[in-house]
Nucleic acid binder design. Structure first.
Length: 216
DNA sequence: AAACCGTACAACCGCGATCCA
DNA sequence: GTGGATCGCGGTTGTACGGTT
């Protein structure tokens, strides 16, 4: 039986008040982030540490960008989702000022619906059978022969390819799935995204798994 | 005007990963 | 090496709000 993360009694839940926000902001401005477990007590908040962390990271941080997503941001979310799946923190890491929660909410409330309307399965980014239009972001029906340009792009020797190039490949070259092999993906100071991906091509005769090192 | 419904988004919960004594 | 504490993530829920009937 898991212990609750915080004492249920004397703990506020639900929407944060302005006073609570201000207390948290004041405390973090003086003491910095971290030690979330001790922040509520130190800041005089009747909240659990997790709640404080979430509130700060998603809404109170000064570098957060609010409001509707620009078209290029939306495009990037779709492309990254095709690559990474529901790894919202990773996706948000590529969108300055956006948080994982915001990206996730935006996906579920806007993009997901939009893709479904376009006849695209938001889970695998594939066009539903029989749907006439073709999205610029999704793979189309599989080809029967090996796609040479795809093979050229994605080489066994773990060559580096550009992010846009891979996205184009995903969009145009009938890739049926992209699976991240390693959980250890990091975004370092030079903003490179190191991923070890397995890409499955659609046709049986050329179905092969290629490991690539994606730097973007 | 009121009830109902759909949407958007803030917040919570549970779990795995990581840290540290 | 181990176990508890903490962190971070993704899924889910709750609720406010606007539109429709």
């Amino acid at each position: 039986m898991r212990k609750p993360c915080c004492d249920k009694e004397n703990i506020n839940k639900g929407a944060w008040s302005k006073q609570e926000d201000q207390k948290l902001i004041d405390y973090i401005q003086v003491h910095g982030e971290g030690c979330w477990g001790s922040i509520p007590k130190a800041a005089g908040l009747h909240r659990c540490g997790k709640s404080c962390r979430l509130r700060w990271l998603n809404y109170l941080r000064p570098d957060i960008k609010r409001g509707v997503f620009a078209q290029d941001e939306e495009d990037l979310v779709i492309k990254l989702h095709a690559l990474l799946g529901n790894r919202w923190a990773l996706i948000a890491g590529r969108l300055p000022g956006r948080t994982d929660n915001e990206v996730k909410n935006y996906w579920n409330s806007h993009i997901r619906r939009k893709l479904i309307k376009m006849g695209i399965d938001p889970n695998n980014h594939k066009l539903h059978k029989g749907f006439p239009s073709i999205s610029p972001h999704v793979s189309t029906a599989g080809t029967s022969s090996c796609d040479e340009s795809m093979n050229k792009d994605i080489d066994n020797n773990a060559k580096l390819i550009s992010f846009d190039k891979l996205c184009d490949a995903l969009a145009n070259k009938s890739v049926v799935s992209v699976t991240r092999k390693e959980a250890s993906s990091t975004i370092d100071s030079s903003s490179s995204l190191n991923l070890d991906l397995t890409i499955a091509l659609p046709s049986n005769d050329c179905e092969s798994q290629k490991t690539i090192d994606l730097n973007c």
